[in-house]
């Protein structure tokens, strides 16, 4: 099944942020979107996650129009935003319980061999979020987003402000996710993350352009 975005349009006031954005991703692929701040990366991911409504365009998964069916969209997509979508006062376990609502057996199992286990959540299961490092919070956010086992995972700058070991842990999970047939769509500014991506797109002036990263960062910056 293919994940496809067709001709997405979005305008904020007079500014046309997205102007006919289209792309397609097959299972087991990682797609990266680069672009300077304010280019519309987060807007695009918010639309794909169902947070924002586009002015036009379609998002399909296996032929189904996800934008016209919030239930199908919620089932198909997991989203990790830039912020911290966690309850700061509560522990990792309490936060996971919210997203595993009514599925406590699944949670117990996943803590043994699922996504939380892969991201080493059990090592800080009872730590309150406000006492966690940035890497812990990001790993927990990914675990929460994956609670309903979506085939498509969207991540908005997942490794921003993380240390090297946290990045390595998260990247290892991304590789495993795509190896198992998942589709990863991430926005990033981080050059090492480009290597994870099977396809890279440059978002500029509201449109996506395929881009092949060759290690020449100054050239990329000039094109942005």
């Amino acid at each position: 099944m293919q994940f496809e975005i067709q001709n997405i349009q979005k305008r904020f006031g007079r500014k046309q942020v997205l102007n006919g954005v289209s792309l397609a991703a097959d299972p087991g692929t990682c797609v990266g979107i680069v672009g300077k701040n304010g280019s519309g990366k987060s807007t695009l991911l918010s639309i794909l996650a169902g947070i924002l409504k586009p002015d036009g365009g379609k998002v399909t998964w296996g032929g189904d129009d996800l934008l016209s069916s919030p239930k199908k969209l919620a089932d198909a997509i997991g989203y990790v935003p830039q912020g911290t979508p966690l309850f700061e006062e509560l522990t990792a376990l309490d936060n996971l319980r919210l997203w595993y609502a009514g599925k406590s057996r699944d949670l117990a199992q996943d803590l043994k061999d699922g996504v939380p286990a892969m991201l080493d959540i059990p090592s800080f299961l009872h730590v309150p979020v406000r006492q966690m490092s940035g890497g812990m919070k990001k790993r927990l956010s990914i675990s929460c987003a994956m609670a309903h086992r979506p085939p498509v995972l969207l991540l908005d700058e997942p490794s921003a402000a993380l240390d090297l070991s946290a990045k390595a842990a998260i990247h290892a999970y991304f590789r495993e996710f795509t190896r198992q047939g998942g589709i990863l769509l991430l926005s990033t500014h981080d050059a090492p993350e480009f290597e994870l991506c099977d396809k890279l797109y440059l978002l500029k002036d509201g449109a996506l352009t395929p881009y092949a990263y060759d290690g020449d960062l100054p050239s990329l910056v000039a094109r942005m």
């Binding site: 996650a49 169902g50 947070i51 919030p70 919620a74 979508p85």
Partner: peptide, 11 residues
């Protein structure tokens, strides 16, 4: 931070 309310709205 409105990340969580926005996210849970999609569900």
């Amino acid at each position: 931070d409105f990340s969580l309310p926005k996210l849970i709205r999609t569900r």
